[in-house]
Simulated scan of single mutants.
Amino acid sequence: MDISQLRMLTAIYKAGSIVKAAKSVHCVPSNVTARMKALEAEVGCCLLNRGDKGVELSAAGKHLLAHAEKVLEAFGEAQSCFNDTKKLGGTLKVGSTDSFVSTQLASIAAAFEREYPEVVLEVATATSLELLEQVIEGKLDIAVVAVNTTNPKIISQRLPGERPVLVYPQRWLHDGPLNLNNRKLLAWPKGCPFQAVAQVWCDDSLKGVEWRVCASWGGILTCVEQGLGMAVVPRGVYDNYSALDGLAVCDALEFDRVDHYLLTHKRTGGHPVRDGFERILCGTSVHSG
């Protein structure tokens, strides 16, 4: 017994004819006849009374019809749920790096909530490698990271990234021409792509740089504002904190862009809520610096 057989049964009841019922379910009469005979064989009784004036449901057929109508109604509601995003519910677990959360996720989450008001959006922040592991383990539905992966279990999609900028204390300008040698530099721990950009720049261009580790963009920029050192940060992060007194940005330096990557697990297949979040995320203009 399947949905198509139940649809045929209800169509026969409404049309009173195999031929008319076949037109309403968009198939040939012989197929309707064969499917009804198969259904009768499955339930073990006659469902249709065939006469000169057409076809009527037997007592058993009418009994099955009552159940068929309920099943078809429930099936229709289930289908409409996936056609109407406002009816979709559940929880979507999203992971992201701190820089992406700080600069872009708020607008994406707001657009997602407008389209999927019944879905609870849970956001977790961690390093890119930690987020990758959580997607592999099924703890996250989707993750945005700053390091690409070739893991065979993962689908990775590149997102336009942003160029880092050098931020330093304004008070350094009070000492004359800006000198960045023998300064302290605040950065995330190794593994962060922005830390890697800063490392290459320091190795190629500066002398005597003393590193200080801080796993927070807000913490890093607050320390810079207090004169504790300089930092290479995502442009969007600086824009969010540019109102801080004492911050200066060096636009003369042009660092390589750091792209983001959207990670999902290959085994998850179709996922209407996750796919909707991905569509909104990819359709949002990403700051490229």
Rank of each mutant, 00 (worst) to 15 (best):
Val237Phe: 01
Leu228Cys: 03
Asp203His: 15
His287Ser: 06
Asp259Leu: 10
Arg267Asp: 15
Gly236Ser: 03
Gln226Ala: 15
Arg267Met: 14
Ile280Arg: 04
Ala196Ser: 15
Cys223Lys: 04
Gly236Thr: 00
Val224Pro: 00
Glu254Arg: 14
His287Thr: 04
Gly283Ile: 09
Trp211Tyr: 14
His271Pro: 09
Gly219Ser: 05
Asp259Gly: 07
Glu254Tyr: 07
Thr284Lys: 08
Val233Trp: 00
Cys192Ser: 15
Pro193Ile: 08
Cys214Ser: 06
Phe194Met: 01
Leu281Cys: 12
Arg212Trp: 02
Gln199Ile: 10
Gly218Asp: 06
Val200Ile: 14
Tyr261Glu: 09
Tyr241Gln: 07
Gly218Asn: 05
Arg235Gln: 14
Phe255Asn: 05
Ser285Gly: 09
Gln199Phe: 13
Thr284Ala: 12
Val258Gln: 03
Val224Trp: 01
Glu210Thr: 08
Ala215Val: 06
Val286Asn: 07
Val213Trp: 01
Cys214Ile: 08
Ser288Cys: 14
Ala252Trp: 11
Arg257Pro: 08
Asp203Gly: 12
Cys282Asp: 05
Arg212Ser: 04
His271Asp: 15
Asp256Glu: 14
Gly219Leu: 02
Asn240Lys: 13
Asp245Lys: 07
Cys250Asn: 14
Gly283Tyr: 09
Arg212Thr: 04
Cys202Ser: 15
Val273Ile: 15
Gly219Ile: 02
Val258Cys: 08
Tyr238Thr: 02
Arg274Gly: 12
Leu281Pro: 02
Trp217Tyr: 13
Asp239Phe: 03
Val200Ser: 15
Cys282Gly: 06
Gly208Met: 08
Gly218Val: 01
Asn240Phe: 04
Asp245Cys: 06
Leu247Cys: 03
Val286Lys: 11
Gly236Asn: 02
Gly229Cys: 02
Met230Ser: 00
Phe194Pro: 02
Gly276Tyr: 05
Trp201Pro: 06
Val197Ser: 05
Asp275Ala: 10
Asp259Tyr: 11
Glu254Asp: 12
Ala198Phe: 03
Asp256Gly: 12
Val237Tyr: 02
Gln199Arg: 15
Leu244Cys: 08
Gly227Phe: 05
Thr268Asn: 12
Gly276Asn: 07
His287Tyr: 10
Ala252Asn: 13
Val249Ile: 15
Val237Trp: 01
Val273Asn: 05
Asp256Cys: 08
Val249Asn: 03
Asn240Arg: 12
Val249Met: 15
Phe255Glu: 07
Gly246Asp: 01
